[in-house]
Design a protein around this nucleic acid. Structure first.
Length: 483
RNA sequence: GGUCCCAUCGUCUAGUGGCCUAGGACAUCACCCUCUCAAGGUGGAGGCACGGGUUCGAAUCCCGUUGGGACUGCCA
């Protein structure tokens, strides 16, 4: 048996939505789990007015970032216009379509206090022919039911009487999504249509069209299996909105989420791996994914949880992998890709790649996104640390003991052996002499040298920073506090 | 309004009639570890929307109620 042929069919009307990313992933997963599986990308760009080339690039680059590789495509629906026209013509010739010259206003006016859905079929038997203002509608059967066999939800029945004579081609002649999508799916021999739940009510219409095309063209193509994925919602339980919610996949890439982590988290929305472990490699996702196991109810896109997953992946990187992964955020001038709208706190001249490699292990388990890295290590590269004034006042400015620690450190550090253990020991002793625990004793030093009360392990940091720079900062802090 | 979908801790989920005094994960709280912050460890709190059935037995099946959502475009 040949593997499934699935397609991801986004419309390029904005940046790449995380919901689209999940839909793409689920399609890809199904294709990848069987030998002959085929994953197709079809850009549904029939609405020329609202498509932009940059959005197409966004889809392509986001999918590449996520590692969702294609077997066929990318295709553009607009390239198939001829195919769509033929389909419409054949359907029209068979009397399954009819011309309609009603404007939207007229349709709405006639509907009045609405009862029947959508269009009322006014032009159904007017025998109109093609004209400058005539769209094409499908002559929907009034009798019977259409049942959508959905792998996720089971059979969903729609009484045909509740489906209106929907429009299939604009008066401009352009064939719309309703038909174009079906014509393309037939052409591409799509076996599984996996998409968001918002398309469930389109399914019966598309099944009718599919059947009609089977009759009219003589090309009998098996209808695809449908699978409507639960929606991704925001905290208000509304469908994720491009306008109001942070749903741009690109922005997560810019923030420093790892593609594997992002994919792993996405897979957890509406599905879950067997067993208690949810951080699982892509191979496990591919192996275990089953459409019939996808949940029915909407899922909240929880950035907090995704951040945790990302932290797990970052900690799982080898030291070298971590250093490399950080490149776009710490030395963007030398990488092929860099996050947009992000400033690196240091200049190219100030940055020291070798030093960063030594520093990186200190912070690897302290960040949850790569975007946090720079701020955490900037004191190594800046000439002087960016000072947290409130912290400085607390442990140095307003604390005589803090100044004593600094003074003592300037002297001891000038001659102590320069390694973390000796620095640790020296600080402990300095503290003891002042009756301070190490916790208290290290604070002023940390603040003076790093500019903050929180950060990577202090003594390792001092070691890497070097004696000269450390002493310089210690003296600088002392000088500041006495003015 | 109409059509359709959905309903297990705050969140994501496991659970497909007895293994459930409902398991895991995130978040949260406490404690431990500890040079700060993390990470890690241990423990705690927290859920089957409601009402009827069916059944010896229901989170699991059926019906209803309530609640939420999607669609209802000459967009996709």
């Amino acid at each position: 048996m040949p593997g499934p042929r699935v397609r991801f069919a986004p419309s390029p009307t904005g940046f790449f939505h995380v919901g689209s990313a999940r839909t793409a992933l689920f399609n890809w997963l199904l294709a990848r789990q069987s030998d002959g599986g085929v994953f197709i990308l079809r850009i549904e760009d029939t609405d020329a007015d609202r498509n932009r080339e940059e959005w197409v690039d966004g889809i392509l680059s986001a999918m590449a970032w996520l590692g969702l590789d294609l077997d066929e495509g990318p295709f553009r629906q607009s390239d198939n216009a001829a195919l769509h026209d033929v389909a419409a013509q054949q359907l029209a010739d068979a009397g399954l379509l009819y011309y309609c010259d009603c404007t939207g206003d007229e349709v709405a006016r006639r509907k009045g206090d609405d009862k029947t859905p959508g269009y009322d079929g006014f032009c159904r038997d007017r025998g109109l022919t093609r004209g400058p203002a005539t769209g094409l509608r499908f002559r929907t059967p009034h009798e019977g039911v259409t049942v959508v066999h959905d792998v996720i939800r089971g059979d969903v029945e729609f009484a045909n009487s509740t489906i209106d004579d929907f429009i299939v081609a604009k008066s401009s002649g352009v064939v719309l999504y309703a038909l174009a999508n079906v014509a393309d799916d037939r052409h591409d021999r799509i076996s599984h249509v996996i998409r968001g739940e918002e398309h469930l009510s389109n399914a019966p219409k598309q099944m009718m069209l599919w059947d009609a095309l089977n009759q009219v063209t003589g090309d009998v193509v098996t209808m695809p299996v449908y699978a409507h994925l639960p929606l991704l919602v925001n905290e208000q339980r509304k469908k994720l909105s491009k306008r109001k919610d942070p749903v741009a996949t690109e922005s997560y890439r810019d923030q420093g989420y790892l593609p594997d982590a992002f994919v792993n988290y996405l897979a957890l929305l509406g599905w879950s791996p067997r067993g208690d472990e949810e951080i699982v490699p892509r191979s496990t996702l591919i192996e275990q994914f089953r459409l019939e196991d996808v949940s029915h109810s909407p899922a909240f896109f929880d950035v907090k949880k995704m951040t945790h997953v990302n932290g797990e992946y970052i900690r799982g990187l080898s030291a070298q992998q971590f250093v490399e992964a950080c490149a776009p955020w710490v030395r963007p001038w030398s990488t092929s890709w860099r996050p947009t709208d992000r400033e690196v706190p240091w200049s190219e001249a100030q940055f020291d790649e070798g030093l960063f490699a030594l520093v990186a292990p200190l912070i690897q388990e302290r960040v949850t996104t790569l975007g946090e890295v720079a701020a955490m290590v900037e004191f190594f590269f800046l000439d002087a640390p960016r000072m947290d004034e409130a912290a400085f006042a607390k442990v140095v400015g307003n604390d005589p003991l803090g100044r004593s620690m600094l003074g003592g450190a300037v002297e001891r550090f000038a001659e102590t052996q320069w390694d973390a253990a000796s620095l640790h020991e020296a600080t402990t002793q300095l503290g003891e002499a002042l009756g301070l625990t190490l916790r208290k004793a290290q604070a002023p030093i940390r603040c003076a040298v790093t500019g903050s009360l929180v950060g990577p392990p202090l003594f390792e940091s001092l070691h890497l920073l070097g004696r000269e720079r450390t002493l310089e900062r210690l003296r600088g802090a002392l000088a500041r506090s006495s003015t």
